[in-house]
Amino acid sequence: MATKASRSAARVMMAPAVILLLGWMLVPLIMTLWFSFRNYQPLRGGDLGFAGFDNYIRFVTSSAFWPAVVATLVIVVGALAITVMLGVLLAILLDQPMWGQGVVRILVIAPFFVMPTVSGLLWKNMFLDSVNGLFAHLWKFFGATPVEWLIENPFLSIIVIVSWQWLPFATLILLTAIQSLDSEQLEAAEMDGAPVLKRFWHIVIPHLSRAITVVILIETIFLLSIFAEIFVTTAGAFGTKTLTYLIFQRVLESQNVGLGSAGGVYAIILANIVAIFLMRIVGKNLDA
C-alpha cells in the first residue's frame, strides 16, 4: 500500500514527531557544545569569552573528576552485578510452579513503581538511619553498634537502594526470556542425564544471554544518570558524587556553565558508547 499520496501523507504525519525530537536533540546539544567552549559563569560576569579546550581539560583535571568517575563506576557496576545475578535467580524461582505466583510477581515488581525520591528517602530514614532505622534496631538486637550507613558505607547504601529499584526490571525481563525457553530442550537434557547445574549452565544461561545483555545495556544507560537517589540521600557528600551529580553541581549550584557543559559532553559521549551496543541489538530485532 504505497501510493504517492499515501507516501506524502506519511511524510506529513511523521513530521511533527521527527521535528520535535530533532529540535529536542539538536538545539540543547549545540548549545551545550557551544557553552563547553566558552568561559561562561552567569553569576560572575556571564560569558567571559572563548575558552578553547580549557573547560574540557579543567573538568578532567579537577580534583573532583576521578573520584566522580570511580563513584559512577562503583555504583553502576555494583548495581548491575546485584540486579543481574539476583535477577536470574529470581526469574528462575518465579518460573517454577507454585501457589500464588501472580501475587509473588506483583510483590517483586512493586519497587520499580516507587518514585526515586520516595525510595531514596524511605531507605535513608527508615532503614539506614543510625538511631531509628530498622537496621540500627537489628544491630542493637544482636548487641552490635548501629552503623551510620550513609556515612560509613555510602556506596554500599546507594547500591542497595538502586539495586532494590532495578531488581524488578531485571527480573521481569529475564522472566519473560525464560518463559520463552522451550521446556522440551530442558527435558531432553534431563533425559540425556545432565545434572541440574549443568542444565542451568549450558542451556538456561546461553538462552538468557541476549536478555542479560539487554538488561545490562538499558540499566547502564539509566544508572549512569541516576540523580534523585543521591539528591535526597547524601546530596553528593561522602564521596558519592557521580559524574551526573558533579555536572549538576557545576551547572546549577556553582553556576560554572562552561565547565559543566564540558562535563555534559563527556557524559553524552559515554552514554552513546553504551547506546551503540544497545541499538545494534534492537536493530537486529527489527529485521526479524
Partner: peptide
Amino acid sequence: KDILMWMLSTKMLPAVGVLYPIYL
C-alpha cells in the same frame, strides 16, 4: 528503520548533558 533507531537514540541522551541549555 533508521528513523525509528534514531528516535530511540535520542532517549539515550543523558539529561544532565543538556541540563543548562534547557534550564536557560
